Computed example of a mutant assay.
Amino acid sequence: MAPAIRDPSHAGSWYTDDSATLSQQLDGWLSKVPSLTTPIGSASSKQGDVSIPVQKARAIIAPHAGYSYSGPAAAWAYKSADWANAKRVFLLGPSHHWGLPGAATTGCSEYGTPLGNLTVDTELVGTIRKEWNLKTMSRQQDEDEHSLEMHLPYIYKMLSLHNSAFKSDASSVPLVPILVGATNSATERDLGSKLAHYLADPTNLFVISSDFCHWGSRFRYTYYQLPDGSAREIRSSSEVKKDYPIHESIKAVDFESIDAVESGEHKQFLKQLQETGNTVCGRHPIGVFMAAVEQASGLQGDGKFRFLRYERSSEVVSVRDSSVSYASAFAIL
């Protein structure tokens, strides 16, 4: 039977479908990431510089917007990871179109990219589908969702650059795609307890797909928080302090979310999201992974993310404006 290949449905719109151009773009963004940098979180920024790539960094958070917006920021996460010893890549992303209460995985055996195909670990996917009670995405649901696809070219690129097994045989480093729906805290802990089993294996690498704040009326989120902590939703008639533009509020709330993720405490992250309503679209896969770290054993690192890069699609100055934030991080497992 011929393999069921998921087509790169967003190629040609969200990113180029020309393999040579795409490869050059990825190389260009990666080349701009320094070999030594200081993390940006409140706590991580005080822990000293890190050398990139980071030894034993086997988990990353990276954005999933169109590459013209988030491609440069994503490079920071991808270049920070230690790809050399990976034998399997778990890819967790949020569901944007399917009202999914739990989680799902793919029915495909390969994921296509303009650079080449990534093989799905169909044996493990079959196992976790049964043991985790996962749903299966239809081909249409799989190809409609961009949160997983936008990471595939970067995964292919990093493996082709740094993984000798992949260079010899691309099928030797398979993919485990997991789509996470609108989960509650209990479901995230339950899924985390199942994922925790795979964290200690030094050959497993984890990619968590998430953008950060989606601000603007088109996202139904116009939260404006002043430096003193007071906050409100603003409208076109609302007054905004001239010395504290909206984009500064967005950044402040995003960095509260970043600090909550860096804390490593799943409950603290959920609490910050509840208090601010921050529209971190990958909050559920991030939550599942944080819950997994809390329940894992045998890790060589603390599993806490450290953020390296923060960008926005634009700087909002008016309620009529909008923006999406992008943040990149790594964790040592």
Rank of each mutant, 00 (worst) to 15 (best):
D121V: 01
T122K: 13
E123G: 09
E123Q: 14
E123L: 15
V125E: 00
V125D: 02
G126D: 00
G126Q: 04
G126M: 03
T127M: 01
T127Q: 11
I128D: 01
R129G: 10
R129I: 00
R129M: 08
K130W: 01
E131K: 13
N133H: 15
L134E: 13
K135D: 15
K135L: 12
K135Q: 11
T136R: 06
S138Q: 14
S138L: 10
Q140A: 14
Q140D: 14
D142M: 14
E143Y: 04
E143A: 03
E143S: 05
D144F: 06
D144M: 12
E145M: 02
S147L: 12
L148E: 09
M150V: 04
Y154D: 10
Y154W: 14
I155K: 14
I155V: 05
Y156E: 00
Y156D: 09
K157L: 11
K157C: 04
L159H: 05
S160V: 00
L161K: 11
L161E: 01
L161R: 10
H162R: 08
S164Q: 15
S164N: 09
A165W: 03
A165T: 09
K167P: 00
K167M: 11
S168L: 10
D169H: 06
A170C: 02
S172F: 03
V173D: 08
V176P: 09
P177A: 00
L179Q: 10
V180Y: 03
V180F: 00
G181S: 08
A182D: 11
N184G: 06
S185D: 11
A186V: 07
A186R: 14
A186K: 14
T187N: 05
E188D: 06
E188K: 08
E188T: 05
R189H: 12
D190K: 11
G192L: 05
G192Q: 05
G192V: 06
S193Q: 07
K194D: 01
K194L: 13
K194G: 01
L195F: 15
A196S: 11
A196L: 01
H197S: 13
H197A: 15
Y198E: 05
L199K: 10
A200C: 07
D201K: 15
D201E: 13
P202C: 07
P202W: 07
N204R: 05
N204V: 08
L205T: 12
L205M: 06
L205H: 06
F206C: 00
S209A: 06
S209F: 05
S209Q: 06
F212Q: 06
C213T: 09
C213N: 08
H214R: 07
W215V: 04
W215Y: 09
W215T: 03
S217M: 09
S217A: 12
S217N: 12
R218M: 04
R218N: 07
F219K: 02
F219G: 01
Y221D: 08
Y221W: 13
Q225T: 09
L226C: 09
P227M: 00
D228M: 12
D228C: 02
G229L: 12
S230R: 13
A231Y: 01
A231N: 07
E233K: 12
S236W: 03
S236K: 10
S236F: 13
K241T: 04
K241I: 03
K241F: 04
K242H: 14
K242N: 12
D243F: 03
D243C: 08
D243E: 10
D243R: 02
Y244S: 01
P245H: 09
I246W: 05
I246E: 04
I246Y: 05
H247V: 14
E248V: 10
E248W: 11
I250C: 04
I250G: 03
D254N: 13
F255I: 08
